[in-house]
Design a protein around this nucleic acid. Structure first.
Length: 473
RNA sequence: UCCCCUGUAGCUCAGUUGGUUAGAGCGGUGGACUGUUAAUCCAUGUGUCGUCUGUUCAAAUCAGACCAGGGGAGCCA
């Protein structure tokens, strides 16, 4: 009975390689071939991966299996197999366990090995991007996917342990006043035959929702409502920006973590962000040591020590005003001159994070004129309680603020920025009905994955990247 | 969107001062060898030279436009 169950069950390769399967017992694994090596000693070696861990398992296949000539010798990189045999301690170096195969069932061959896009060799990361459907089968694709998963699970776990509720804010929004960037229109109107009103304008009353709708650029405004009821909340979902951004740091569809904390000031938000980064990086180092080893070797020789340094050190916090002074006095020539009031450019942010601090830095209290209407005005009347966390190599990874909870000040800010109060009805209600100080931030999830893996381009850390002129797959 | 660079075999790239048959490594295939480790050794095939238009007797090579990719900038997460 026990034996039968072992034969029937198909363990994940990670469990087999970590010693969770008894040696000497029957075993079956399923997966894809990474490499096949033939030995004239009368055996072939199959390296089989199933995505459950970085390393493939080795199956030793004797050439007296009845389908050796017809099937086994046809296996090439990418073929899928079901291998049955006995788990044994490996005679060779490089792995502790291997499978002495008694049956090899070919599930699917590669129809033309000559043109299979994924050779058992190094491919450029740009090429892999064009093969997004096969990319997850590669070492790097699998490793990124597992680390991304660990980060996402760790975010949820961290928030849960801290008593935060996950709020599913809508992806379709009716307000075009979110103000964080260009939006994608959501419509079921026939573009070839648009309905018109009396004035000849497009009649959105005829559209699906009876009004103009868009994909959200941020869940923040919506999640503030739940914050002002459940106190500690966050959103974690996709957001969409129709900006024509062509950089290694931008996607048209990306994921964002947005905590929102009631009864909290800017410092509380920065502390939460810092604790979260520590927590999730520690999870990655603990749970994905195999994948991180790979990134360290092949992608970025300093990733692991970088994550360790984030885990073990306090983030430097710096006021915008002090940062300006540092930039002005550092003796470095910048393309864009620095003076109080200007928005910092990449070169400035990079100098602060990479050279001046040498690690993540929390920049806070920016001039109000370069920030959003909802950020809380400081007592100086010139700055707002906003913060960005700048990470070396990536730039802005977190952007947050204390929200303006005073209705009169909020209204004045709306007016200053030429925004219509009427458009912010329910948002203003939060300030009219039991307003509380609250703060929050947005963490770009792909930037987080990029930072954690050392991969330079966010297009390589999301399964199917959407960027201007590109929505393949 | 702006500036710069790139686009040649399945992949990574070399080359062509315009002129008969376009090269290498890797991968694939065949063989040798080996409890092998993206093995090693020998042999071997492969190309609308990104697309379109133009200049020319002749364009993969020159010019223009377009498309795609990369780096940087802006927007931001």
């Amino acid at each position: 009975m026990l034996i039968k169950r072992l034969i029937m069950s198909v363990p994940a390769i990670t469990d087999v390689l970590t010693g969770k399967h008894p040696v000497g017992e029957p075993i079956t694994v399923q997966g894809w071939i990474r490499t096949r090596r033939d030995s004239k000693a009368g055996i072939s070696f199959l390296a089989i991966h199933d995505g459950s861990c970085f390393d493939p398992i080795q199956a030793v296949v004797p050439n007296d299996l009845e389908n050796y000539q017809d099937d086994v010798l046809k296996l090439t990189t990418g073929s899928s197999v079901k291998v049955t045999g006995t788990l044994v301690e490996s005679q060779g170096k490089g792995q502790s366990f291997e499978i002495q195969a008694t049956h090899v069932e070919v599930l699917g061959l590669v129809e033309d090995p000559d043109t299979y896009p994924m050779a058992a060799k190094r491919h450029s990361i740009e090429y892999l991007r064009e093969q997004a459907h096969l990319r997850p089968r590669t070492n790097i694709g699998g490793a990124v996917t597992r680390v991304r998963n660990t980060l996402a699970q760790a975010v949820h776990r961290f928030m849960h342990e801290k008593g935060y509720y996950w709020i599913s804010t809508p992806l379709i929004t009716g307000s075009d006043c979110e103000g964080a960037g260009e939006m994608f229109r959501v419509s079921t109107l026939d573009l070839e035959n648009l309905p018109r009103d009396d004035k000849g304008s497009i009649d959105y009353k005829e559209d699906f929702f009876g009004k103009e709708t868009f994909l959200t650029v941020s869940g923040q405004l919506n999640v503030e409502t739940y914050c002002c009821a459940l106190s500690k909340v966050y959103t974690f979902g996709p957001t969409f920006r129709a900006e024509n951004s062509n950089t290694s740091r931008h996607l048209a569809e990306f994921w964002m973590v947005e905590p929102e904390i009631a009864f909290a000031d800017l410092g509380d938000a920065a502390t939460l962000a810092e604790e979260m980064l520590r927590y999730v990086f520690k999870a990655v180092l603990d749970e994905r040591a195999d994948d991180m080893q790979f990134f360290q070797q092949r992608v970025d020789k300093t990733v692991i020590e970088r994550l360790e340094s984030v885990i073990n050190s306090e983030f430097v916090r710096m006021d915008y005003t002090d940062a300006i002074e540092i930039l002005q006095n550092c003796g470095k020539k910048f393309e864009n001159p620095v003076s109080w009031g200007v928005d910092l450019n990449s070169e400035h942010e990079r100098y602060l994070a990479e050279e001046h601090v040498g690690g993540p830095v929390v920049l806070q209290n920016y001039p109000k004129d370069i920030k959003s209407f909802y950020m809380r005005l400081n007592d100086d009347g010139k700055t707002v309680a906003a913060m960005d966390i700048l990470a070396p190599g990536i730039g802005e990874i977190v952007g947050g603020s204390q929200r303006e909870e005073r209705l009169d000040v909020l209204d004045q800010r709306l007016e200053e920025m030429g925004l219509d109060k009427e458009d912010y009805g329910w948002y203003r209600d939060l300030r009219r009905y039991g307003t509380v100080p609250h703060s929050g931030f947005g963490l770009g999830f792909e930037r987080l994955v990029a930072y954690a893996t050392g991969i330079a381009n966010v297009r390589d850390v999301i399964p199917f990247p959407r960027t201007p002129k590109s929505a393949a797959f």
